[in-house]
Amino acid sequence: MTLVTAKGLEKTYIAGDITVRAIRGVDFTIEPASFVCFIGPSGSGKSTLLNMIGCLDPPTSGFLEVAGKDVTHLGAKESARFRGDHIGFIFQDFNLIPVLTVFENIEYPLQMVQNWPALKRKQRVNELLEAVAMKDQGGKFPNQISGGQKQRVAVARALVTNASLVLADEPTANLDTETANRIISLMKQMRDEFGTTFIFSTHDHRVVKSAEKIFTLEDGKLQQQGNGDNHV
């Protein structure tokens, strides 16, 4: 059983007279509860691939299945609903909503996307706050906490809906080494605790080292597949 299956996946951008083939016929599979990394030089197509898996950008051709659903041709509304139900996102710049407290940021997907009842929401958010060691910071606003704490909140927000898949684009790029290591261990711990699959796009060797499966992309093609040990 696989969580993500891609066959002959292609993405082409057309800007005026210029046609860019960002992803060129990629095939891969990702199993549930795995820690996967896409690496490669800038412009190799890592982010494009992540966006397609995250149903943010539809493939130009090929086949893509995520969490048992063919997402190759999803419309805007349908893909938004699918993302809300199955996918969590962690961003390089944390992307917390500044007018919401830590608690409310984590609560946001449950409240505004999945419409959970208040009591159940509170219980779930507290669970996640505890899991990311931010229990006593729930009432603070994003501008009152550190970068590492912000990324913890982002991890909690990504996991709060019981997403089967979390996509993280350069999640440690804006963090110091110690904080980055702590965030990586936190994500691994979350994977173990909740059985969530984490897929990264990164240049950070610390993330690569911790990955169980690594896909190397170059010019939109998958060049090799391996694990953290044989890449670092």
């Binding site: 909503i97 996307v113 809906t161």
Partner: peptide, 16 residues
Amino acid sequence: INEIGTIAAIGTGPGK
């Protein structure tokens, strides 16, 4: 704009 992108990415529908 960035914030709109974030809430859209995490599943907030266009109507909301």
